[in-house]
């Protein structure tokens, strides 16, 4: 079990759980990152943060701090 933050570029992972609370979590869920969905880590920004992922067929960028809330396998 690890978080999305630790996943290197080019890997596809499956979301198992979202930790944290409040608006950020809801926003992440609203954008389609929910339990069981496959997330492809596309690239990392030039300065190492944020990351760009492909989820449900579109590109999404999120910060590593927020990616830490997403548990994947």
């Amino acid at each position: 079990m690890s978080t999305l933050k630790e996943i290197p570029c080019g890997k596809t992972v499956k979301v198992t759980k979202l930790t944290g609370e409040g608006p950020v979590r809801r926003r992440i869920m609203d954008m389609g990152i929910t339990k069981g969905v496959e997330v492809f880590v596309r690239k990392v920004a030039p300065l190492g943060d944020p990351v760009e992922v492909t989820v449900r067929g579109y590109e999404l960028s999120l910060r590593k701090a927020d990616a830490e809330m997403i548990q994947v396998e």
Partner: peptide
């Protein structure tokens, strides 16, 4: 609180 930064990157 630290800010969320969840943003769509449009084509």
């Amino acid at each position: 609180d630290p800010a969320p930064f969840v943003m769509e990157l449009p084509a």
